[in-house]
Design a protein around this nucleic acid. Structure first.
Lengths: 214, 214
DNA sequence: ATCTGCCTACCTCAATCGGGGTATAGCAAG
DNA sequence: CTTGCTATACCCCGATTGAGGTAGGCAGAT
């Protein structure tokens, strides 16, 4: 079986070299490159052809999260494993949004590093327990009530019409799209308004989107 | 140091007993209860006073995700560790939304179970690598572009008016709220429509909410 | 000093919408 | 077989909105 090609970006010289030797000293892994910054990022990745990139989040010059974005765009198959000393929400959040595949702390043991590299290469997303907790918390904050949305007892037809309304269509266009008449759509809309306790189309759209009724 | 009190809910008798002995056979842990279903959930938790609940996601009667919701509401300090044989998006997603603190597969080794229990008790969120990957993917889907939302160059006043519109207010009410006149609001709305490339209030609301312009 | 962008304000006209009705038909539950 | 719910469809009327103008005042930039 072929080796996992790892490339690392890490500004701390000592850590960079330690990781370099650690990876090369591990069976099934090889370090195809080790760089102190993200200058010439694209060129270096093209040259070194990594399977996994180990990326420090705080570095001089281009930020780690920026680098992740570029890697994901230019080299979609490459897995990026973030490593950091910080575990603040903002950093984690932007790394996730940028498309990182794993997120470990620098306090991780050498064996943990190797395990994480292998895990990420196998399609997993290793992350330190405390980081995972933060991600779950972020998730719960940002997606407040996907399932706890109150049921307004909309009929299938009413939901269908509401969906069209949310797309910005007029009653006429909805009538067209649903194969009914303008007046029928209006009747349904009146019922929708009554059920949602609103009295304008904008209010209905707002409520539909915010409470994910659509 | 005191022991971690674990209570488990698992319908499979064999697995339930195995886990019971595993936990009681581990230093620092004790199994304060083991139940085949979530009947009398609240009573049983009140009686057994667990630090950590190990919850099967698929059970007869009350679903695991429902149980998590109740536990989080009634006993906020209790950590819930979900275990499942499935790793489909819906289950993971609803468990997270319900407030689970960890998510492991049943293929996890006994040592892994113990580690996960300890991790969750220490404020971590252990999860199988593949589950973590799914959560990251869900995250990236649901939070598509928190910062990459295109800028439509709305002026402050226009944004203010749009915010009112999203709340479902009519032009008249917006005029009132912003201290201007009805006609001025209409003028602003025309400009907003032009900038957002829409031509109805519902479309504007929809775009504002979906692209987080508000 | 002029120009550009923003906020302000008004007008008209046609189209759409909200609220109030009424009515028929299908279909499932009681 | 009647009751209730849903879907269908139409009417009227007044209010609101969309589209098209015009125009003054004011701040910051060139």
């Amino acid at each position: 079986m072929s080796q996992i090609r790892v490339v690392l970006f890490e500004d701390n010289k000592h850590l960079r070299e330690s990781l370099y030797y650690l990876i090369n000293g591990t069976e099934g892994c090889m370090c195809a490159g080790a760089f102190p910054d993200c200058n010439n990022l694209v060129v270096q990745i093209k040259k070194t052809q990594p399977d996994v990139v180990l990326m420090d989040i705080e570095m001089p010059g281009m930020k780690g999260t920026e680098a992740v974005k570029i890697i994901n765009k230019e080299f979609p198959g490459v897995q990026v494993l973030m490593q950091t000393i910080f575990q603040d929400d903002d950093n984690i959040f932007s790394a996730i949004c940028a498309g990182a595949s794993g997120y470990i702390l620098k306090t991780t043991s050498p064996a943990g590093y190797i395990e994480a590299i292998k895990d990420v290469h196998n399609g997993g997303s290793p992350m330190t327990g405390s980081v995972a907790r933060k991600i779950l918390q972020l998730f719960q904050e940002k997606i407040p009530a996907i399932s706890s949305s109150t049921d307004y007892h909309l009929t299938p037809k009413e939901k269908e019409i509401l969906q069209h309304l949310v797309k910005g269509k007029s009653f006429k266009m909805i009538a067209d799209a649903t194969g009914t008449t303008y007046e029928t759509v209006r009747t349904h809309m009146k019922n929708i308004y009554a059920k949602l306790h609103v009295n304008s189309n904008t209010e209905a759209v707002s409520k539909a989107l915010n409470e994910r009724i659509v």
